[in-house]
Design a protein around this nucleic acid. Sequence first.
DNA 1: AGATTAGTCTAACGATTATTAGATTGTTAC
DNA 2: GTAACAATCTAATAATCGTTAGACTAATCT
Lengths: 217, 217
Amino acid sequence: MNDSRRIKDLLYEQVARIGKAASSPKRLELIELLCQGEKTVDTLAREAAISMKLASAHLRELRSARLVETEKRGKYVIYRIANRAVADFWVGIRSLAEDRLVELRMVIEQMVSHPKELAPQDRDSLVRMARKGDVMVLDVRPAEEFLAAHLPFARSIPIGELKLRLSELPKGKTVVAYCRGPYCLMARDAVELLRKKGYEAVWLPEGVAEWGMVPVR
Amino acid sequence: MNDSRRIKDLLYEQVARIGKAASSPKRLELIELLCQGEKTVDTLAREAAISMKLASAHLRELRSARLVETEKRGKYVIYRIANRAVADFWVGIRSLAEDRLVELRMVIEQMVSHPKELAPQDRDSLVRMARKGDVMVLDVRPAEEFLAAHLPFARSIPIGELKLRLSELPKGKTVVAYCRGPYCLMARDAVELLRKKGYEAVWLPEGVAEWGMVPVR
DNA sequence: AGATTAGTCTAACGATTATTAGATTGTTAC
DNA sequence: GTAACAATCTAATAATCGTTAGACTAATCT
C-alpha cells in the first residue's frame, strides 16, 4: 500500500462519517426536529417516539459527526443543529431519495389523499398573497418552534389547540397550513379538520428548513 | 403505535437507504469514480484498489439504493451514475464533511504542501484565460474519462504519459492541471513533476463533478 | 469444444451497530 | 438533608455489515 492510497482512504473515511450519521431513520428524524429549533433530549425523545436512552445514544452519534451541538442549561441538555449547512444537507438527501426511490414516492402519494388540498408551490406569490392578507398562513407546530423561526406572515395555532381556537380563523379566506415539512403530518391533519368544519384550507408541505430559514446559534 | 407514526417511520427509513449507501468510504470512492464516466466493475476495482468481489458487493449496495445503474455489454457489466443529482449529492456531502470535520481539513492541509501551487478558484476567469490561450488547462485523467466529459478548453495528457509528452506543453504559459477532484492526487503529482522540469504549473483541485459537468446517460 | 475472462451469488467469518437494562452523575424542588 | 428528574455511561444482547473464499454463469477467444 502506497502513500497516496493511505491519504485517500483517510479522506473518504471522514466523509463516510457524515453518511453513517445519516444512515439511521431515527437520526434523520432527530435532525429534522432540530431544524425546527433547539430542543432538550426528552422533548426530542417524545417527538420522535423513542426512549430517552435511545435518543441520547443517537444524539451522541450525531454529535460525534459534528452535525449537532449541545449546551447544558440547568438540569437540561439542549441540542441544536451545528449550522445551516446541516439543514441543507437534510433537505438535499431527502430530495435525492425522492428522486431515486419509487418506494418513497409511493408512500408520499399514499399520504396525500386529495391533491386538491395541496398549496401551490410558488413561494414568492404565496408571500405576496399573505402580505396583502388574501390568504392566512397558519403554523400548527408547537409554540416554541414558531418562536424560534417561522414563515413570513405566519400565525401560530398549535395543532392541539386548533379545535378550540377555530374562531380566530377567517371563514372567507384560504388557510395555508404548514408544519415541520413534508414528512410531518400535523398540517395535513389540520387541513382535514378545517375542511370538515367548513373552512377552505390547503396543505403547504414545506417548513422553515425547506425555506432556508432554520434557526441557528 | 398509531397510523401516522407508521407512515413517518416508512418515510425516514427510505431516506436512510441513501444515507446507508453513503456510509462506506469505498462506496463513496466508487461514486466519485463513476462521476468521471461509466466504467466496468474491474476498472472500478482497480482504481479503488479493492478486489473485484468487494467492488461487486459495494456496487450492488449502490444499485439497491438506486444511485447507480448497470448495463451489460458483451462480457462486461458497465456501471454508471443514475443521474446528475447523485453527483451533486457527492459534492454536497463532501462539502458538509469539510465544513464540519476538523480532522478532514487537517488531512487536506497535509495534502497541499505548498499553497502557492493552487490555482485560483474563480471559474469564469479561468475559462476566459483558457479561451484566450493565456493558460493551458491540462486534464491528466485516463483518456476515456476525458472523452466522457472535460472542463472547457482542456487538453488531455494522462498522468502516465506525461513524462514522455512534456514537449506538448508550453514553457512560457502556466499549466493548470486537474483530475477527478480534490481527493484525487493525479493532478497534484503532475504539478510536482512539471515544476521539477521547469514548467510553471498549478493544481486545480476540482473536476467535472464539481463543475456540474458529469456525463450521464 | 475447451480455456479464459468478467462478474455474480452464496455462505461464512469477524467486526460494528442498534437497542435495552442497570447503575451513576448532576441539578432542582421540597 | 431526601426525593425527583434529566441525561449519560457501561455492559450485554441480537441484528447487521464488511470482507473473503468457493461455486457458478455467461460471454469471448482459440
